[in-house]
């Protein structure tokens, strides 16, 4: 009876989750092209930091010799690795971290400006809203990092198409994970300023302790434990491995990276899909 009745309530067609997700993802992509300052800043910042840190620490950086228990795939290239080459994957990680978190932050803007409400009262399934936010944020972050990626050729790395594809995949997975965490935080934090504060508190240490600036193998004690527990460490390792840099435990790194992406999707899904108070 319900279906018979509901069809009389409105003759409008059923909303397809995929077309809703596509339209909302497209919106995220259109928005970034209309904000050139955001695009430029997200690419220029890691490039400048790479230049400054890479130049500053170039002489003092010595890639550590890994302990025998961790050493599974290191080769003689370790010694030849300069700090600029070591730092580049970390900069790519930084780009996706901050870009995807800013993408997630747009949820707060959408809520304040009323756009989110207009989407929530539509018949579009909730999962399509979550997926579009995750996909939009992750795609933008990955593309921004991929603009920096050709810098590997300047460093003389011989990275083939497979390496570039795997790097993009690692970046995309990292972006999905971070976007999911960002969406969950943005759902509960009411202001952009508050979100900035929370993200600086969490994201900056997360990046610094991810093996982006200094290797896990060189850390000791408590810092090493934290770094190993940090999923971004393994994402960065997967990136190192894809770009041909020496990296320990690449299989584990990839497993954690993919798991991190799944966690991000689940977080975004639960937050936007189930977090909405409704009948």
């Amino acid at each position: 009876m319900t279906s018979a009745h509901t069809s009389t309530l409105n003759a409008a067609p059923n909303s397809s989750g995929f077309s809703s997700a596509f339209a909302l993802t497209r919106r995220e992509l259109v928005r970034i092209t209309r904000q050139p300052s955001r695009l430029i800043a997200s690419i220029a910042t890691p490039l400048i930091i790479w230049l400054l840190l890479g130049s500053g620490f170039a002489e003092s950086f010595r890639p550590p010799t890994p302990t025998p228990t961790l050493s599974t795939s290191l080769d003689t290239a370790t010694d030849a690795l300069g700090y600029g080459a070591y730092l580049l994957p970390g900069m790519l990680t930084m780009t996706v971290l901050f870009s995807s978190i800013f993408g997630a932050m747009s949820l707060i803007e959408d809520r304040h400006e009323g756009f989110l409400q207009s989407v929530l009262v539509s018949p579009a399934p909730r999962w399509s809203i979550a997926i579009s936010k995750l996909l939009g944020s992750a795609l933008i972050a990955t593309v921004q990092a991929m603009i920096i990626l050709p810098a590997v050729f300047l460093l003389g790395n011989a990275v083939g198409p497979l390496g570039l594809t795997l790097s993009s995949l690692a970046l995309f997975c990292t972006a999905l994970g971070i976007a999911g965490i960002g969406l969950a935080a943005a759902w509960w934090v009411d202001s952009s300023q508050g979100f900035h504060g929370v993200m600086n508190l969490v994201l900056l240490p997360m990046w610094l302790l991810s093996g982006s600036v200094f290797p896990l193998e060189g850390a000791s004690g408590w810092m090493r434990v934290i770094m190993m527990a940090n999923p971004v460490t393994w994402c960065t390792k997967a990136l190192h491995a894809s770009l041909g840099n020496p990296a320990t435990d690449p299989a584990l790194a990839w497993a954690v990276t993919i798991l991190f992406a799944c966690l991000g999707i689940a977080l975004g899904w639960v937050t936007l899909g189930r977090g909405v108070r409704r009948f």
């Binding site: 409008a12 909303s15 809703s20 596509f22 909302l24 497209r26 919106r27 989407v119 539509s122 018949p123």
Partner: peptide, 8 residues
């Protein structure tokens, strides 16, 4: 975008 949300 609104049309897409309504399946139009």
């Amino acid at each position: 975008a609104q049309a897409a949300l309504h399946g139009i």
